[in-house]
Design a protein around this nucleic acid. Structure first.
Length: 453
DNA sequence: TCTGGGGTCCTAGGACCC
DNA sequence: TCTGGGGTCCTAGGACCC
C-alpha cells in the first residue's frame, strides 16, 4: 500500500505557521515578480480566485474582502518542506519526495490498519511542523493520489463525500459498492495523468467519472488513446504500473530562467542576467555531480504586450568538453547571448538551459592541442581553454568551484560571484519584483522570528 | 502598468545503417 | 511490370505533472 501525504494549500500554510493571524482569512501567494496567484487558501478559492490568475485581476479583493497577497518566499517553503518530509518519512520504510509539498510513503510489509497510522502522520506533521496535510491511501500511486484528492474534498466541501473520508482516505480498505459510489462521484479530470486535453476527449466519449474510466478495457484504451493512459487505467484497477522512486536519478536537464521585474533593453543588463542564471545552473549541476555538454540560452520579449515589437531567440552552445565550471559555462552563455541579442526590443525574460548532462565521473579524454587557424573555433575563448587544459588546471578549477560553493553556502547566495553578474540594485534592473515577501524566518539569522512576552 | 518556473515521458518521422 | 526487411539514433512536438 502507498500513502500520499500532501500539504494543504502548502505555500499559504507555510505563511500561516509564522503569522497565525492569517488563519481564516483569504490569502494568496504570488508567483515570481508578484505576477499571478500560485497558492490560495480555501477562503481565497471561495472568492473565485483561480490558480494562475494574474494579480492585477484579483487585486480588488484586497479592499473588498481583506485579501492578503504575499510574494513567494521559497527559502521558507523549501525549509518547511524538508521538515515535513523528514517527519512523514519516519513512518514508513520507503519514501519518495514527489514535489515540494507531496511525498509517497511505501507501507509494504507494515502490519496493521493504515488509517490510524496515517492519522498519526497527519497529527505529527501538524504539531511538529505546523502544516496541515491530507493523506490518501491505495494499492497504487494513482489510487493513493485519488484518495488524497477525495480526503481533501471531503474536508473542504462537506457533503461532497462521506465525512469519514475527510483528511485520511483509504481506497484500498473499501468494499466494492462503497468504492464504486466514491469513484462515480469523482470527475475523470481529477485523475493523476488525465489533463485538460485527454480529460475533454474522455468526456466527449461519454467517460465522465472515474468509475467510467476504471471500467474500460486497458487494451482498448491503449489503442484509442495511448500507453500512458493505459497505465493510468491499470493503476486505477489496482495493478501497479508506476513504481516508487526513492532515489530519483540525477536530472537530465537543468533550467534557470526568470521573467524580469521590469523590461530590459540593454545588452549589458541581459549579460548580467545570463551570468546570474548560468551561475545558478552551474551550482545545481555540481550539486548533483553532473557536467553539461551544451548550454541553451534564450531571450524573449513579452507576448502580453501586443503594442511592443516581438522577438524571441535561442541558441545552443556546444561545449568543447562537458563541464560544471561556472566561468566556462558563463563564457559560453555570454557568447551565445552576443549572437542572439538584437537592439531595440523590450526584453521580458531570459533563461539558460543546461543539457546533455552526464555524471562528472564520466570524462572523455582528449589530446590537448590548438590550431590557431581552426576554421571552427570553439565557443569558449582561448584563454579560458588554456585555463582548464593546462595540466594541473583542471584539478585547481574543481577546488575553486568547491570553495565558491562553500562560501556561498555559508555566507548566502551571491556572496561570491562572477563580476559580470553585476551588483545588487541599479546594476541589476532585471531583478525580481517581490514587494510582499515575508521574512525568511527559518533560514536567515537576521530574519528570525522574535517572540515577545 | 501588471500574466511563473521548473520538469518528465511518449510518439512520429526522418536519416542512416546493413 | 517488378523495387526488402530489418535495425538505431535523433529531433520536434505534444501531453502531462507540481
Amino acid at each position: 500500500m502507498y500513502a500520499l501525504v500532501d500539504g494543504n494549500n502548502f505555500y499559504v500554510s507555510c505563511e500561516r505557521v509564522f503569522r497565525p493571524s492569517l488563519i481564516g482569512r483569504p490569502v494568496i501567494v504570488l508567483s515570481n515578480n508578484d505576477g499571478c496567484a500560485v497558492a490560495r487558501s480555501d477562503e481565497a478559492k471561495a472568492l473565485g480566485i483561480k490558480m494562475g490568475q494574474p494579480w492585477f485581476q484579483c487585486k480588488a479583493f484586497e479592499e473588498s474582502h481583506s485579501l492578503v497577497a504575499l510574494s513567494a518566499n521559497f527559502a521558507l517553503y523549501g525549509d518547511l518542506s524538508d521538515r515535513m518530509m523528514a517527519v512523514a518519512g519516519s513512518f514508513a520504510p520507503r519514501q519518495e519526495v514527489y514535489s515540494i509539498d507531496e511525498s509517497f510513503l511505501d507501507f509494504t510489509g507494515v502490519p496493521g490498519d493504515l488509517v490510524p497510522i496515517c492519522r498519526e502522520v497527519r497529527a505529527r506533521v501538524l504539531q511538529w511542523v505546523g502544516i496541515p496535510t491530507c493523506v490518501g491511501i491505495g494499492p497504487t500511486k494513482t489510487l493513493a493520489k485519488l484518495a488524497n484528492h477525495i480526503a481533501k474534498s471531503a474536508e473542504r466541501k462537506p457533503g461532497s463525500y462521506p465525512v469519514a473520508l475527510a483528511q485520511v482516505c483509504h481506497l484500498g480498505a473499501m468494499v466494492k459498492a462503497e468504492l464504486d459510489a466514491v469513484l462515480a462521484a469523482t470527475a475523470v479530470g481529477e485523475v493523476w495523468g488525465v489533463g485538460r486535453r485527454i480529460g475533454a476527449q474522455l468526456v466527449e466519449a461519454g467517460i465522465k467519472t472515474v468509475l467510467d474510466l476504471v471500467r474500460l478495457d486497458a487494451m482498448t484504451v491503449r489503442r484509442r488513446f495511448s500507453v500512458v493512459l493505459e497505465k493510468t487505467v491499470r493503476e486505477l484497477q489496482g495493478t501497479p504500473c508506476i513504481s516508487l522512486d526513492d532515489a530519483p536519478p540525477p536530472k537530465q536537464q537543468l533550467m534557470v530562467s526568470r521573467s524580469f521585474g521590469q523590461a530590459v533593453t540593454k545588452g549589458v543588463d541581459l549579460a548580467s542576467a545570463v551570468t546570474e542564471f548560468t551561475s545558478r545552473g552551474a551550482q545545481k549541476l555540481r550539486q548533483q555531480q553532473s557536467t553539461a555538454g551544451a548550454l541553451v540560452v534564450f531571450i524573449r520579449t513579452s507576448s502580453f504586450r501586443a503594442q511592443d515589437l516581438q522577438y524571441s531567440a535561442s541558441i545552443t552552445m556546444p561545449l568543447r568538453r562537458p563541464t560544471s565550471d561556472t566561468a566556462l559555462l558563463v563564457a559560453a552563455g555570454l557568447a551565445g547571448l552576443r549572437l542572439i541579442y538584437r537592439k531595440g526590443y523590450r526584453y521580458a525574460k531570459a533563461g539558460v538551459m543546461l543539457v546533455d548532462l552526464q555524471s562528472q565521473e564520466v570524462c572523455q579524454g582528449e589530446l590537448d592541442w590548438f590550431d590557431e587557424n581552426d576554421p571552427l573555433p570553439s565557443p569558449i575563448p582561448a584563454h579560458e581553454q588554456t585555463l582548464v587544459n593546462a595540466g594541473q588546471g583542471g584539478r585547481d578549477r574543481t577546488r575553486l568551484m568547491a570553495a565558491m560553493d562553500e562560501v556561498n553556502q555559508r555566507f548566502g547566495r551571491g556572496a561570491m560571484q562572477l563580476a559580470s553578474a553585476g551588483l545588487e540594485g541599479e546594476r541589476r534592473p532585471w531583478s525580481m519584483k517581490q514587494e510582499r515577501r515575508t521574512p525568511r524566518y527559518t533560514t536567515h539569522w537576521e530574519e528570525m522570528a522574535v517572540a515577545r512576552c
